[in-house]
Computed example of a mutant assay.
Amino acid sequence: MNRFVVVPASYVYLLREGAQGTEVLLQLRQGTGYMDGHWAAAAAGHVERGETAYVAAEREAFEELGIKDVELEFLTSMHRTQGADPIDERIDFFFTARAWSGEPRIIEPEKCAGLDWFALSALPDPVVPHERATLEALRGGRVAPYTTHGF
């Protein structure tokens, strides 16, 4: 039987209140080979064997932003595909956080060309497409617990 592989990943959207409403911290991707030049979650990455999506989100927040004690709130899961290659089958777990310890900063400059806060109502361009869909749903207050992208 031919089974496909689903690759899990965790995303962390740090949120705060700003002059134009809710703001999200985004990173400008570079040097990764995937969506370089696009804005994306300030912290995100693959879930490693033996860890939960929550643990992966906490780990990525520390590895990419240098922050700890991230108070994660589950936002949504997204099943997405980008084509026929088995590696393109994904399950993404999105979290938000409004509290953490430390000041977010660029820890991996080879992968991150910038880090900035943006109002959900004024996202930069371009944003990684499946992340833009999630952020727009968050802005609209209508995030379903399960979403899909690319089908």
Rank of each mutant, 00 (worst) to 15 (best):
E60V: 10
L75W: 04
P129E: 06
E51K: 04
E60C: 10
R80G: 12
E103Y: 06
K111L: 15
P86F: 01
W100A: 01
P126H: 15
F74K: 02
H79Q: 07
G83V: 02
A133N: 07
Q20M: 14
A137S: 05
R98H: 01
A119M: 15
E71F: 03
A113M: 10
N2V: 15
E131K: 07
R139S: 05
F74G: 00
S121C: 13
Q30R: 11
T22G: 03
H38N: 06
L25D: 12
E58C: 09
F95A: 00
V12M: 08
H38C: 05
F95M: 00
V47W: 01
E51C: 05
L115G: 12
T96D: 00
A97I: 00
L65A: 07
A19R: 14
R142Y: 10
F151I: 06
R98M: 02
H130W: 11
E51T: 07
F62S: 07
D125Y: 14
A53H: 04
L15M: 08
R59W: 06
P124C: 09
Q27M: 12
P129C: 13
L25N: 04
H79S: 05
V6G: 04
R80I: 03
R105G: 11
W117T: 11
A137G: 05
G141N: 01
G114Q: 13
G141T: 02
H130M: 13
P124K: 06
